[in-house]
């Protein structure tokens, strides 16, 4: 009777956006009289941080300070259509729509600025809210002045419309041929476990992962997804089921007393590195990261259990009972 150490790996891909596409999102941006920019979205933040990363993308694309961008989400009376937050699509779709809207608003802003400055719009540089003529930085103004002039002197709107749609792909019913995704993110996770052959318990010691996510808009939030997924994946691998005797309905769970998810006491050592290979169609090269982080830990843990004790338990969740039964079956085979 002993505890056995094992290590397992898993390498995965994950598609960005709804399968087959056809899932648009729109954004509107308008400039307030004193140079604030409001981004109107009907998108939802589930906790992943959409409100923040969209403000970053809008500020970057507009060329204005982060704090001058307001992101208004979640009201169908004030914002155009968004398909929703799922399928690792939000940062990719919403981000692209926001960049398109920002480009239009930025162009309108620079047209007014050009008139004010008696310069050609293509000669103007807009950075962090400051506007100057290329090669002549002393000829300058700022978004505040231009916005005021646009409103009260020129009678011009500074606003932008954006949409992103990946055209819906067909699917050949005979072969399955289709274009399922916009891009693919990738990850490899290494799991280290300890399996107790007396109790069947599996303890995950460490989850170390390399994620490739195109481009990180906010690295701490990417890390937030990675840690989140590591724990949810571990939980999926070892703990969770609403039907412990699936497909039977017996012992159907009804509370967190029977439906076990990890607590702060259950978390392994979690490490990660993030690679950036910008995608061709994501905003600044983004790929979706929200869902995939919960995927790679699962097979990595199951493979580590095999490495530790030499049995395949491939019916999730890998409960102590299943581990013990598999060990018993193997010992019967070998004797």
């Amino acid at each position: 009777m002993a505890k056995h150490y094992g290590r397992g790996i898993a390498a995965v891909n994950y598609p960005t956006g709804m399968n087959l596409g056809g899932d648009p999102t729109q954004a509107l941006i308008f400039c307030q009289p004193t140079g604030g920019f409001s981004v109107k979205l009907a998108s939802t933040d589930l906790g992943q941080g959409l409100k923040t990363v969209i403000a970053q993308i809008a500020a970057e694309a507009l060329g204005v300070p982060f704090d001058s961008v307001i992101v208004d989400t979640g009201d169908t009376d004030s914002a155009p259509h968004c398909m929703g937050t799922f399928a690792s699509r939000a940062t990719h779709r919403v981000g692209n729509a926001v960049i398109m809207a920002a480009n239009e608003a930025r162009k309108a802003l620079l047209d007014v600025a050009a008139e004010e400055m008696e310069a050609a719009p293509e000669d103007l540089v807009l950075e962090n809210g400051e506007i100057y003529v290329k090669g002549a930085p002393e000829r300058k103004t700022n978004v505040f002045n231009v916005a005021l002039a646009a409103h009260f002197k020129h009678g011009k709107t500074i606003s932008g419309r954006g949409i992103y749609l990946k055209q819906k792909s067909g699917l050949d019913p005979e072969t399955g041929a289709c274009d399922p995704d916009s891009t693919e993110a990738h990850a490899t996770t290494v799991a280290e476990v300890e399996v107790d052959d007396e109790t069947g318990e599996v303890k995950v010691l460490r989850l170390a992962s390399a994620y490739e996510v195109g481009r990180q808009i906010n690295p701490e939030m990417v890390k937030g997804q990675i840690v989140s997924g590591a724990v949810m994946g571990m939980s999926h691998a070892l703990m969770e089921t609403v039907f412990p005797y699936y497909p039977a309905l017996d012992h159907h769970t009804y509370s967190f007393g029977e439906y076990i998810i990890p607590t702060a006491l259950d978390i392994p050592e979690i490490e990660s590195v993030v690679l950036e290979y910008p995608s061709s169609n994501g905003p600044y090269g983004v790929k979706g990261v929200g869902e995939m982080t919960a995927n790679s830990p699962i097979p990595a843990i199951v493979n580590a259990i095999y490495d530790a004790v030499g049995v395949w338990v491939t019916d999730l969740p890998v409960t102590p009972e299943k581990v013990l039964r598999a060990l018993e079956e193997r010992s019967l085979e070998t004797h």
């Binding site: 790996i9 390498a11 891909n13 072969t175 399955g176 041929a177 289709c178 274009d179 399922p180 995704d181 891009t183 693919e184 990738h186 990850a187 490899t188 996770t189 290494v190 170390a208 992962s209 390399a210 994620y211 490739e212 195109g214 490490e271 990660s272 590195v273 690679l275 290979y277 995608s279 061709s280 790929k287």
Partner: peptide, 23 residues
Amino acid sequence: RPVRKVVEDATLIETIQAAAELI
């Protein structure tokens, strides 16, 4: 790929190599 889309944006190999280096 089997769905008859040409692979682009692949980095599976790079993440495997990076994970090996990490541990």
